[in-house]
């Protein structure tokens, strides 16, 4: 599988219509922007009754990975570029989309890195792996920028 497809998955209508709780940010590419957004979404998951471990681990770590990738890889750490984050929580799931101004990357190659014998001693290369490990569904595509969609279903 190559880089992210060039459009949003057709089969999935906008996940942000009719959401019970909805959040949206457009911020500069600065890692200091990550923590407040993660805190807000995680708190909303706690309030919505998501399982404890999801609120302590899955949600904050996967969101941090998606935004760090967007800022440091997609936008190449250029603070003049922006990152857009849309989140919604409803009766079924948490859905978050993180969009940067980059051209995307080969997610399958990034995931496959964990099979490399040298992966264990590398400083980088765990972010994409963790997103897939901690979320129920991860999708990526390029449209006006590159978007990562994270979905965590209520259990």
């Amino acid at each position: 599988m190559g880089p992210a497809p060039m459009r949003s998955p057709d089969s999935d209508p906008s996940p942000f219509a009719d959401a019970a709780s909805r959040f949206e940010w457009s911020v500069a590419s600065d890692v200091r922007e990550i923590d407040p957004i993660v805190s807000t979404i995680t708190r909303a998951c706690v309030d919505a009754g998501f399982p404890d471990q999801a609120c302590r681990l899955n949600v904050p770590v996967a969101l941090t990975e998606a935004m760090a990738n967007a800022i440091m890889r997609g936008n190449e750490g250029d603070v003049s570029r922006s990152m857009r984050v849309c989140a919604r929580i409803d009766d079924a799931m948490l859905c978050v989309e993180v969009t940067d101004e980059g051209a995307g990357f080969d997610a399958e190659a990034a995931r496959a890195m964990c099979q490399d014998p040298e992966w264990l001693e590398r400083e980088d290369g765990r972010g994409v792996f963790l997103m897939y490990a901690l979320m129920d569904k991860v999708e990526m595509w390029c449209d006006a920028g590159h978007t990562v969609r994270l979905v965590l279903r209520r259990k």
């Binding site: 302590r56 990975e65 760090a68 980088d124 765990r126």
Partner: peptide, 11 residues
């Protein structure tokens, strides 16, 4: 929690 950057720093 620790993210992949934190894990990488430990490595």
């Amino acid at each position: 929690y620790i993210d992949s950057s934190g894990l990488g720093a430990l490595v």
